[in-house]
Simulated assay, not measured.
Amino acid sequence: MKKTNSNPSMARSMGNKLSALAGAAALSVFAVGAMTADTLAAEVTLRLHQFLPAQAAVPKHVLIPWMEKIQKESGGRIEIQHFPAMQLGGKPPELYDQAVDGVADIIWTLPGYTPGRFPLTEVFELPFTMTNSEAVSRAFWELAEETMMDQDFKDTKVLGLWVHGPGVIHSKEPIKSVADLNGVKLRAPTRVTNAFFKNLGATPVGMPIPAVPEALSKGVIDATVIPWEVTGALKTSELVHNHTEFGDESLYTATFVMTMNKDRYNALPDDLKAIIDANTGLEFSAMAGKLTQDEDAPPRKMAVDLGNNNIELTPEQVAEWKGAADKTIKDWVAEMDEKGLDGTGLLARATELIEKHSK
């Protein structure tokens, strides 16, 4: 006669343990299988490097959705890893060379961070040239295809070119007239904007945008010029309480480039290149420009809600500033003409394209 287990509770306990072990083993196999499947699915891994925190407007509303779209449309065959706030090392002015050298596969930066290196892009940064960021971004891409891809950007595969919304002066003391800028230590983003504000009597202080909050809090600068959309991430409205706007005019804008290492792009299979191509270029640039300006509204409201002094200049006041801008524009055109870059023709063509897309 077969002997039965005299301890039913022990049997149940052993059974539960065996079931748990079997379940854990199954989960482990599933996890390894899933991980292997994901690894196999990602044929290409690209690293995107840029200078702002991930929660800032452009990364949040332009770069991250773009990465997700590429990954989805490639069926996971392209994986894009995001490295915000210079996490791969270096400083913002080094980003373009990181794309050239392959330190990063894709970068987003301001050409103006390396003064004089991308002279043709500066035409869109001249004061009071911009209408709205979508129209100017379209003009930027079209002019780049005509004049810049084989000159300024010849060493990389350009994915997108756009500009931000109207530049605003954020200052410790109210600024209404050009005379109010006299002696003000002011951070501006590019060579052109630094020359402009120097001509207006300010003392320009160059620095990448991530350095602005500390510079304001320590008194290194008295003011900065940036669009509203970036002020939320930088907490500018908490550091200074005066914001000067120029009505329907735009004091200035700055240009952006999103670009890719040429070898990495050329090594992609044709079908993956096609996915990249379908999500870059003119329409992507226009969309990025529009989304960037759309994001001006929430941080502006934040400044209003804080009770800050939002100074909206009248057309008569703006006219004074526009008159004072003439020297910067003429100097830039003459400089480009001297270098054989046809500043006269470049400004005329940029103006023509902006007008076309602003209608």
Rank of each mutant, 00 (worst) to 15 (best):
residue 271 D to F: 10
residue 25 A to G: 15
residue 249 E to I: 01
residue 128 F to I: 02
residue 260 M to R: 11
residue 219 G to F: 05
residue 265 Y to R: 07
residue 199 N to H: 09
residue 276 I to L: 14
residue 76 G to I: 08
residue 217 S to G: 01
residue 128 F to G: 02
residue 228 W to H: 01
residue 28 S to I: 12
residue 307 G to Y: 15
residue 15 G to T: 02
residue 293 Q to V: 10
residue 284 F to T: 13
residue 139 A to I: 12
residue 119 P to R: 02
residue 308 N to K: 14
residue 346 L to V: 07
residue 60 K to Q: 14
residue 191 R to L: 02
residue 147 T to H: 08
residue 350 A to F: 02
residue 310 N to M: 15
residue 240 V to Y: 06
residue 234 L to E: 09
residue 304 V to I: 15
residue 80 I to M: 09
residue 189 P to F: 00
residue 247 G to W: 01
residue 131 T to Y: 01
residue 349 R to F: 03
residue 80 I to W: 07
residue 143 L to Y: 03
residue 229 E to D: 09
residue 352 E to Q: 15
residue 129 T to D: 00
residue 214 E to A: 10
residue 227 P to L: 00
residue 275 I to L: 08
residue 57 A to G: 06
residue 358 S to Y: 08
residue 295 E to C: 06
residue 239 L to Y: 04
residue 46 L to Q: 10
residue 102 G to F: 14
residue 270 D to G: 07
residue 332 W to D: 01
residue 304 V to A: 12
residue 77 R to T: 05
residue 159 L to F: 14
residue 110 L to W: 03
residue 142 E to Q: 13
residue 288 A to R: 08
residue 197 F to L: 03
residue 298 P to I: 04
residue 241 H to T: 13
residue 262 K to V: 06
residue 85 A to N: 13
residue 106 I to R: 07
residue 57 A to D: 13
residue 128 F to N: 00
residue 319 A to F: 03
residue 114 T to N: 06
residue 356 K to N: 08
residue 3 K to W: 07
residue 318 V to D: 14
residue 205 V to T: 12
residue 16 N to W: 07
residue 149 M to F: 15
residue 352 E to V: 00
residue 286 A to C: 12
residue 180 D to L: 08
residue 260 M to G: 10
residue 19 S to V: 10
residue 78 I to K: 10
residue 14 M to T: 03
residue 346 L to D: 08
residue 164 H to P: 03
residue 305 D to K: 11
residue 34 A to C: 06
residue 203 T to E: 13
residue 117 R to C: 01
residue 105 D to H: 13
residue 231 T to D: 09
residue 226 I to V: 14
residue 320 E to G: 09
residue 94 E to I: 01
residue 125 E to K: 00
residue 206 G to I: 03
residue 300 R to Y: 01
residue 276 I to M: 15
residue 345 G to A: 05
residue 224 T to I: 11
residue 16 N to P: 05
residue 276 I to K: 06
residue 257 V to A: 04
residue 292 T to K: 07
